[in-house]
Every structure is written in structure tokens, then in C-alpha cells.
């Protein structure tokens, strides 16, 4: 196990608060619309972190399937924001090279690059850049939808840059 990450996560107050409060009731797991695809249920993920099995938690695909719909968060009887917990785990995984090949990880990086460059994003640009990086064939699959959007005059590649971009970059 990577001792450094364990330490990093242990010193994260937000993660700590989640782990300390959780009563392992499973409301989050059963509320999650994507639970059937997860290797660990959200509740189990919290238990893993609680028992210091950080490596296993960061390797799990559970957090990557979280779409942050926060159904778990509003239902949790001890008011843990599990969605945010997942986001934190994703961040640690990305930072520590656990997810270099995951599409979602690439998507976030593409997104951040766009924001850092323009201050804003355009969905079209995001999807195209992301697809070129991962699976250009995917763009073909999207053609019918693109055609519809184009017809409706919605699709556009233009992206207005934030004027005072320096404020964004620093």
C-alpha cells in the first residue's frame, strides 16, 4: 500500500468527517442508480477508506461511476455528502496516477485544459477533443445526433474567450 496516499487521505478533513460519521446503513448504495455496475457499493467504499485500505479504494471503479446526482446525500441519515466523497476519491486517484487510462479521468483533464485556456468551455469542443484523445470512432457514432443539432442550429464550434483571462489562470 502506498503509505503516502494513506497519509494524504487521513489528513483530509472532509474525508475524515465522512468516515467518522458513517453508520454503514447502506442507504447510499441502494439509492445509487448505477450501483449494479460498481465493484464495491458506496457504503463499502467508505468502509475501505475507514479501514485504511486506500489503495483498494482508489483502484475501485465505484467512484468513477458516480454522476454526482446526490440522491445518496439527501437521503443519508447522518448527512454525509457521499457524492462529494466520491469526487474527493476521484481527485486522489487522478493525482496519484491510478486512473491515467480511464476515460472519465481524461474527460476531466480535457475540461480543465479548456477552462484554463478559454475561461469557458463549449460542449462541442469538449466532446470532440475528448473523443480524438480516446476513441475517434465514437464521433462517427454521434453523427445522427450531431446532424439533428446542426439542423436545429444548435451545434457550433465557436467559443468566446473570457476577456480577462489572466484572472482565470492565476
Amino acid at each position: 500500500m502506498n503509505v503516502q496516499i494513506t497519509h494524504l487521505i487521513n489528513s483530509d478533513k472532509k474525508i475524515h468527517a465522512v468516515v467518522e460519521k458513517c453508520i454503514q446503513c447502506g442507504t447510499c448504495s441502494a439509492s445509487c442508480p448505477l450501483n449494479q455496475y460498481m465493484d464495491y457499493t458506496p457504503r463499502q467504499l467508505i468502509a475501505l477508506v475507514r479501514e485504511g485500505m486506500i489503495d483498494e479504494a482508489l483502484k475501485s471503479r465505484t467512484s468513477w461511476l458516480c454522476s454526482t446526482c446526490y440522491l445518496c446525500a439527501v437521503r443519508c441519515p447522518v448527512k454525509i455528502n457521499i457524492g462529494d466523497f466520491m469526487t474527493s476519491l476521484k481527485r486522489y486517484a487522478i493525482k496519484n496516477g491510478y486512473s491515467d487510462n480511464l476515460p472519465y479521468s481524461k474527460l476531466t483533464k480535457t475540461y480543465v485544459d479548456l477552462v484554463n485556456k478559454y475561461g469557458r468551455i463549449s460542449e462541442t469542443k469538449l466532446i470532440i477533443t475528448f473523443s480524438l484523445k480516446t476513441n475517434p470512432l465514437k464521433l462517427l457514432k454521434m453523427l445522427p445526433l450531431s446532424a439533428k443539432l446542426l439542423r436545429e442550429g444548435i451545434l457550433s464550434l465557436s467559443l468566446e474567450k473570457v476577456k480577462n483571462i489572466q484572472e482565470i489562470r492565476t
Binding site: 447502506g26 448504495s29 441502494a30 439509492s31 450501483n35 464495491y40 457499493t41 463499502q44
Partner: peptide, 11 residues
């Protein structure tokens, strides 16, 4: 009724 059997770890 939807729930997680927490001892099984399965929804």
C-alpha cells in the same frame, strides 16, 4: 423495497 443487504454488500 430497495435496500442494500450490508452483510452481503449487495443491493
Amino acid at each position: 423495497v430497495i435496500f442494500e443487504d450490508t452483510l452481503l454488500g449487495r443491493v
